[in-house]
């Protein structure tokens, strides 16, 4: 039948089902809360969450919190990404450096980053530095090892071709290795950005004056579940936007790899 094939065509679009999945959960949420089966104190309805969100926005704290959290994430992640790139490339191209650093990194990688929080507070106090450091610790080793792996898998033919064309030294790195691994490096950053975003919230739950995580822990103290929901949804949306940003960047900068 015509309508069934049209329907199938609509559902084959990757976005349609994704949006439908979100809408389903939203619908169930609306249904459960409006039926009065659940205490509003535990599960506020979409309307209440929207109100709490707009109120936070009008008071200016929503934007201030988001900016505070985003700043920490970007600062910590930029240091992590910036250091991981040369070290990962060095490990991927040089056996000695790799043998020296890989066991150490593999060990630290398995220490949960949040377990460093007490130490970081003792060392750096309660200001910005311990939070930025936490994000650095939580992402640097993953970033480095994943970049190292990408570099190790550069086909030797690509490097050797450059050598037989008269290339030597640094240009091999910048003009062959770097462009080849660029898509994987961007993907590494995209994946590990998610943990950076998780860690900033954890750090703020422990100690902070502002930030999306801090707002959630304050809301818990006053049993403001609607504000907790606002925090969770905003955190999710910002994370999604960052993810999409990386994907966009990858499509633009590395169209050859798609």
């Amino acid at each position: 039948m015509a309508w069934s094939s049209a329907l199938r065509r609509i559902f084959s679009h990757p976005w349609v089902l994704g949006v439908l999945g979100i809408l389903t959960v939203f619908g169930v949420w609306l249904l459960v809360t409006s039926s009065g089966l659940v205490d509003k104190l535990f599960l506020p309805g979409p309307g209440a969450v929207w109100l709490a969100g707009t109120e936070q926005f009008q008071r200016g704290i929503l934007v201030a919190d988001a900016v505070a959290s985003i700043r920490r994430v970007f600062l910590g992640f930029m240091i992590s990404a910036g250091l991981a790139l040369p070290i990962g490339i060095a490990m991927g191209t040089n056996r000695t450096i790799c043998n020296f650093l890989e066991p150490l990194m593999a060990l630290i990688r398995y220490m949960p980053a949040p377990a460093f929080i007490p130490l970081l507070i003792i060392y750096f106090g309660l200001e910005e530095l311990p939070k930025v450091m936490l994000i650095f610790i939580g992402t640097f080793f993953f970033n480095t090892l994943m970049i190292m792996d990408a570099v190790k898998f550069v086909p030797s033919e690509l490097v050797e071709t450059a050598l037989t064309l008269g290339g030597r030294g640094l240009p091999i790195l910048t003009r062959v290795v770097a462009p080849f691994v660029a898509p994987q490096v961007l993907d590494t950053y995209r994946i590990n950005m998610a943990s950076a975003w998780n860690l900033v919230i954890v750090a703020e739950l422990v100690a902070a004056n502002e930030g999306l995580g801090k707002r959630i822990s304050l809301a818990q103290r006053f049993l403001r579940t609607d504000e907790i929901f606002v925090g969770l949804i905003v955190i999710g949306l910002i994370g999604l936007l960052i993810d999409l940003g990386f994907r966009f960047l990858m499509r633009r900068a590395c169209s050859w790899a798609n």
Partner: peptide, 25 residues
């Protein structure tokens, strides 16, 4: 000059950029 069987071209460069690669190196 050498030509390999596999991975003979740089996939991120156009045909012309590939030919120009050695010259620009």
């Amino acid at each position: 000059g050498m030509v390999f069987q596999k991975y003979s071209l740089y996939p991120w460069l156009t045909a012309a950029q590939n030919v120009a690669f050695g010259l620009s190196l």
